[in-house]
Amino acid sequence: MSSPPVNSAAPLLEVRDLTKRFPVKTGFGRPVRQVHAVEKVSFSIAPGEVVGLVGESGSGKTTVGRTIMRLTEPTEGQILFDGTDIAHKGAREMLAFRRRIQMVFQDPFASLNPRARIGALIAEGMEIHRIGTARERAERLAELLDLVGLPPEAAGRYPHEFSGGQRQRIGIARALAVSPSLIVADEPVSALDVSVQAQVLNLLQDLKERLGLTILFIAHDLAVV
């Protein structure tokens, strides 16, 4: 399911026959069979479009998202991002693309380092990609916190001091920190209370319209999509 594309430009992301098989090995490390997690999946997303990837639990949705991010290596197929196949690029070549593709994870607590302050977690991507000076990063951090509806003092606190919905807002701010073109949102509200789900969905909708984001929205709930 998708919203109407903003324009008829070439796809920002095109997945062709994406396949991921996980080997099952014996105690001696010998592969005896393969688990077919994803088999021949193809779709495309135009710039500014939101596409819902829907399926029941265990159907391989998260594996598709992680493989697009290259957190999981594809077995076969192509992942064309802005016309370039990134399916088998090396770590150094992927660095530039990782700035343009970010992920919001399902579990907002497990995806945040419990020993790091929120400000450091959000700014980490800017430091890795050498975006701006220290002062500019601090200004960007304040802007991001305001963008996702969190107060400035949140930067000095730790993940356990926030509710589930607030932690997911932090995860969204962290994904937006490097100004990506594509967000892969992996079940971003499934771990949240129903009352909080609507708030986070409204936030994503607002950010999509304000920033012109392209989003792959992974979910098992058709009503959420």
Score class of each variant (00 low, 15 high):
residue 127 E to C: 06
residue 140 R to T: 15
residue 110 A to M: 01
residue 193 D to A: 06
residue 171 G to M: 01
residue 197 Q to S: 02
residue 85 D to I: 14
residue 181 S to D: 15
residue 218 I to T: 02
residue 163 S to M: 13
residue 50 V to E: 00
residue 58 G to V: 07
residue 67 T to V: 14
residue 213 L to S: 09
residue 208 K to F: 04
residue 145 L to H: 04
residue 149 G to A: 11
residue 3 S to M: 08
residue 47 P to S: 07
residue 72 T to K: 05
residue 129 H to V: 09
residue 92 R to S: 05
residue 108 P to T: 00
residue 86 I to L: 09
residue 73 E to V: 13
residue 176 L to E: 11
residue 132 G to P: 03
residue 120 A to R: 02
residue 71 L to Y: 07
residue 149 G to I: 03
residue 182 L to Q: 04
residue 94 M to S: 12
residue 137 R to Q: 13
residue 78 Q to D: 09
residue 169 R to N: 10
residue 78 Q to A: 05
residue 36 H to F: 10
residue 189 V to I: 15
residue 34 Q to S: 08
residue 116 A to C: 10
residue 179 S to W: 12
residue 118 I to H: 02
residue 218 I to K: 01
residue 11 P to G: 12
residue 150 L to D: 14
residue 83 G to Q: 05
residue 177 A to H: 01
residue 92 R to F: 03
residue 214 T to H: 04
residue 19 T to R: 08
residue 189 V to S: 01
residue 216 L to T: 02
residue 118 I to A: 06
residue 225 V to W: 00
residue 71 L to W: 10
residue 181 S to G: 11
residue 225 V to C: 08
residue 141 L to Y: 07
residue 104 V to D: 00
residue 45 I to M: 01
residue 181 S to W: 05
residue 11 P to S: 11
residue 198 A to C: 03
residue 212 G to S: 13
residue 63 T to D: 03
residue 133 T to D: 06
residue 207 L to E: 07
residue 1 M to F: 11
residue 208 K to S: 11
residue 102 Q to C: 11
residue 216 L to F: 05
residue 1 M to A: 13
residue 98 R to M: 12
residue 133 T to M: 09
residue 97 F to P: 12
residue 208 K to H: 15
residue 132 G to N: 12
residue 2 S to W: 00
residue 83 G to F: 14
residue 74 P to V: 09
residue 22 F to G: 02
residue 31 P to S: 11
residue 8 S to K: 09
residue 151 P to K: 08
residue 17 D to E: 14
residue 22 F to I: 03
residue 98 R to H: 14
residue 134 A to V: 13
residue 188 P to F: 00
residue 208 K to Y: 09
residue 203 L to N: 03
residue 6 V to L: 07
residue 96 A to T: 08
residue 12 L to S: 05
residue 52 G to Y: 00
residue 158 Y to V: 07
residue 8 S to W: 03
residue 177 A to Y: 00
residue 109 F to L: 05
residue 63 T to S: 10
residue 78 Q to F: 00
residue 74 P to I: 06
residue 16 R to F: 04
residue 182 L to G: 06
residue 39 E to S: 11
residue 70 R to W: 07
residue 29 G to D: 01
residue 157 R to V: 05
residue 155 A to D: 01
residue 54 V to R: 09
residue 116 A to G: 04
residue 178 V to A: 14
residue 145 L to Q: 05
residue 141 L to C: 09
residue 79 I to S: 10
residue 153 E to V: 14
residue 171 G to N: 04
residue 143 E to S: 15
residue 25 K to M: 12
residue 94 M to I: 05
residue 128 I to D: 04
residue 46 A to L: 02
residue 208 K to M: 02
residue 21 R to S: 06
residue 79 I to D: 13
residue 55 G to E: 13
residue 46 A to Y: 07
residue 127 E to M: 03
residue 28 F to A: 10
residue 176 L to V: 14
residue 150 L to C: 13
residue 113 N to S: 07
residue 199 Q to P: 03
residue 63 T to A: 03
residue 183 I to K: 00
residue 206 D to E: 15
